[in-house]
Each structure stands twice: as structure tokens, then as C-alpha cells.
Design a protein around this nucleic acid. Structure first.
Lengths: 218, 218
DNA sequence: GTCAACCGTTTTGTATACAAGAAGCGACAT
DNA sequence: ATGTCGCTTCTTGTATACAAAACGGTTGAC
């Protein structure tokens, strides 16, 4: 799924949208971007098509591609779905998880704890990602893993922002412990519930953040 | 998201893959197909890109696009995810569903019943689809609705095949009644569970069908 | 003064031409 | 006889050229 250039360009464009370089509603000028990337319009158009399929841009026929940043409502919705998917992973993983994977989870958690104590939100983020990825894998359902990973990736920039919340890292840490405990005991329902809350709360936190930013601006 | 031709071609190619005209592993010859559709390679390639993104073909760099029919295992996995998504829709809908939508559900159910009695699996299928679509909508989560609809569409050809199972229509019908009852009472947990079973059983039935076909062939 | 229509410009969508990589085949050498 | 190297050919990936549609500005009419 990667003829080097179009693939590379798609990834770069994604980055530019994620980090906010491209504002919401901004049109992606094919010739300008093609020039900028030093390629012709053809591979660039392919990249844009891919962004459109992932929902990052709206493609309006004969008008062009317009950046489509999700608004607060859609973000909440996406986190809600994320919570459901992660919960499903957890429920399945509780039945199927291997001892080796449990050890990996505990290892990731230990590193998370170290990051919390070191107030190192970057490495916390990295280890947190590893933690969740293990659970996706251990669901034993490749398709679920794939879909969950896709949404996880899409929510990445927003999750990252809300990590700076006061006390969020410590709270998140505690939730991780509870999740591992539930998985250890093979308690799928509890693992699912805990994961659901763990993820859904991120959406709510983010919503609060957005609201506070908005009211501060007024 | 549609400059008429590429869009049209993508849909047609999808159909051809769904209905099995293109075998698993078959290479999609760009020039031959372009010729066949009466267009140049450019829009055809865009269509193929889209199929690749939806997972219908594997795109191997410098080698071409190869049809990728999901195997039995992947199908089970997809139905499992479908069950989770529908269950999530049900849980949310139980809290939010409007009286009008409840009436619509009952209406769809009545038509389903008529179709069962008339042994009309085509119209059963249509009404069944309407039934589920209403629940997706009433989840009140646009993103969830969108994702669920997408997967629903992808599983369409497989769901259809297993509908011919003896007694499946009647059983499915009874499950619909139970779902409506749970939604009426605002019992999200029960609505979710019932929906989950209702969908997951389809995957299992399909699996059985595949197995029986396979053993019959031996 | 304002609104509408027409023309020029810009930009997207499509076709075609070109380049580069991969597969198939044959010849040669071991 | 078999394996490998090189050539030919086919196919994909990219660039460019062309067509058509949409936007903007200007001009004219009411």
C-alpha cells in the first residue's frame, strides 16, 4: 500500500493537519503543495485521496480538498467509540491474554510509574501507548486490533494535549493498575468497564479543556 | 468525495469484488480495466487506491493491486467487531431514542414479520437493514453511526448469504422484538447484550456455512 | 446604486507520454 | 543438466499536457 512518494507525502500531510499547521477549512492547493514537495500533482492527489478516506479532509468535487478538523462534539464522539473499542479489546483479552503479555503490561506500567515520578510526560506517553497496544494485540482479533489502532492513531494529537492536565498522569496510572488486575483475574467485564472509563474520561477532559479555552477567549 | 468517474468506478469495482467476480488473489490489471470502463488509467488508479484503503485489495508497490477476499477467520473477527459496535449503538440508543424512532422500529419490525410469513427473504433483508440503521442513528453519536454503517456495508454480501439458513429469519425476528422491548424500557445493558448476540450469531452461522461447504467439497 | 451576465483566470479532473522497476526467457557457463 | 546472468518486455509510478468547470472581476443595464 505504498509507492514511496505518495505514501510519504500522505504521512507528511497528516502530520501537518494533526499539528494544526493547516487550519480548519483551509484549502489544500495542489500545485503549491506539489511544488513544495517537489513532485507533480499526480502523487499529491493520491495522497489527498487517502486523507479524504481517513476523514481528515473533505473532498468537494471540482472545488478541492478542505481540511476538516473535528470539532468538540465530534471529538467526544470519537473518544466514545474509542472507549467502546478498547473495552471490547479488554473483554476479549481477559480470556486470551498470555503470561508473557501480562508481564509486558506490568513492565510497561512500571515504566509509566517511573515517568510519572520523573514528571516526564513524553516517556509516559510512549509507554502508555505500548500498554494499550499490548491489550489490542491480546484481544486475539486481528481486525479489531487494526481498527482500534487506526482510531488510536487518529486521536493521538488530542490525547497528547490533554495529558498535561493536573493530576491526570497519576490518575491514569492508577487506572492502568486496575486494568492489569482485572486482566490477571480473567475478569473480562471489569477489564472492559475500567478501560471504557479510562478512555472516555479523556474525551471529557478534552471537552473541558476546549470549553475553558473558549470561555477564556471570550 | 466524488469526482463522478473515479467514484462510479470504485463502486462498480466494489460490486465486482463483493459478488465474487474477482477471485481472491487476482491482480487488477489497470490497462485492461481502464479499457473496460472506457477511461484512462488515472481515475482507475484513484478508484483502486480507495479499495485499498477499505481493505478490499492489497496494494503491493511496483507489483499491482491484488484482490483480498477475507477468509473465514477474518470474517468471524469482523462480525465480532460489528457485534460490539451494534451493541454500543444499542446501549446509547436506549438512553436517547425518541418516541418517533421507536414507532419506526416497530414499523420496520412489522414489515419484517410480514416478510417472514411471506418467505420473502429479499424484503426481509431490506427491512432488517432499516431496523438496524435506525438504531445506529438513535445512538446519537454521529461518528459511531458512520463507522458502524461502514462495516455494515462491508459485511453486507456475507450477511445476505447466511440469511437463507433454515429458521434464521424467524429467530432473527424474535431477537428484533427483544431488542425493541429493551429499548422501550430504556434498558441499555439488555439492548446491547441482545444486539451483540443477534449480530455475533451471524458470524458463527456463516462460519458453520463455510465449514459445511468445505467439508462437502472434500 | 445595485444586480446580473459575460469573459478571463484559476483550478480541478482526465488523458497521455515517459521513466523505472520487476518478471519472464533464453543463452551461456560450469 | 542446471543455475545464473543479462536482455527484453510488460507494468507500475510519475510528469506533463489538455479539457472542462468554477470563481472573480468588470461592464452594462435597470
Amino acid at each position: 500500500m505504498q509507492q514511496r512518494r505518495a505514501d510519504h507525502i500522505a504521512v507528511q500531510l497528516e502530520e501537518l493537519i494533526f499539528d494544526g499547521t493547516f487550519q480548519d477549512g483551509q484549502r489544500l492547493d495542489e500545485v503549491r503543495l506539489a511544488d513544495q514537495f517537489g513532485v507533480s500533482r499526480t502523487p499529491l492527489r493520491e495522497a489527498i485521496q487517502r486523507l479524504a478516506l481517513s476523514g481528515l479532509v473533505d473532498l468537494i468535487p471540482r472545488r478541492g480538498a478542505f481540511v476538516r478538523q473535528p470539532g468538540p462534539v465530534e471529538l467526544i464522539e470519537m473518544f466514545e467509540v474509542m472507549a467502546e473499542l478498547e473495552a471490547a479489546c479488554g473483554r476479549l483479552a481477559a480470556r486470551r491474554i498470555s503470561d508473557a503479555a501480562l508481564a509486558d503490561l506490568r513492565d510497561a506500567n512500571a515504566r509509566c510509574r517511573a515517568a510519572v515520578e520523573a514528571r516526564d510526560s513524553d516517556s509516559y506517553y510512549t509507554e502508555n501507548e505500548r500498554f494499550h497496544r499490548i491489550i489490542y494485540q491480546q484481544s486475539g482479533n486481528g481486525f479489531l486490533e487494526q481498527e482500534t489502532t487506526k482510531l488510536h492513531k487518529r486521536l493521538k494529537p488530542f490525547r497528547r494535549k490533554q495529558l498535561g492536565f493536573r493530576g491526570r498522569m497519576a490518575q491514569s496510572m492508577a487506572e492502568h493498575e486496575a486494568i492489569v488486575a482485572a486482566l490477571e483475574q480473567g475478569d473480562g467485564a471489569r477489564a472492559g468497564d475500567t478501560l471504557h472509563k479510562h478512555v472516555a474520561v479523556q474525551g471529557e477532559k478534552f471537552h473541558n479543556l476546549m470549553a475553558s479555552l473558549k470561555s477564556a477567549a471570550e
